[in-house]
Amino acid sequence: MPGMLKIIFGNLFKKRATRLYPFEKRAPFENARGSMDFAHMENCIFCNLCAKNCPPKAITVDRANKRNALDPLRCIQCGVCAEACPKKVIEMRGQYNEPCYAKRTHVAAQVVKCAQTPPEQK
């Protein structure tokens, strides 16, 4: 009893430990695995290694249409895809994915802007 008394009175006059989360946001730690992101999509060669190595099979690669899709609700943030990627397209961000009302896939697509070679003829 005396031990706890000391602690509760200490707490009463100490600054609260609470991180007032939605109002004060804490920056994620360095190297934290919050969510995965196709950050450098322009380098992607659609080799399918990320999809093959993904443990929950959350990534699908559509080589014909040059699109990578991620199901963020299935992703477990293990970071294997980022390690497997030969072109370092994928990065792990410290910030986590936002909660959502509906299941939506995140699609990252390559679009040819100055159309020397349209994607169909390549």
Partner: peptide, 29 residues
């Protein structure tokens, strides 16, 4: 409910990529 598509330009100078926030949804994958 459609997928959130982020497009990245290739073949030209890479435009500043728009992140998921204000991307337009495309009909299907």
């Amino acid at each position: 409910t459609g997928p959130i598509v982020v497009e990245t330009a290739v073949g030209a100078k890479p435009a500043p990529a728009a992140k998921y926030a204000n991307a337009a949804p495309a009909p299907t994958l």
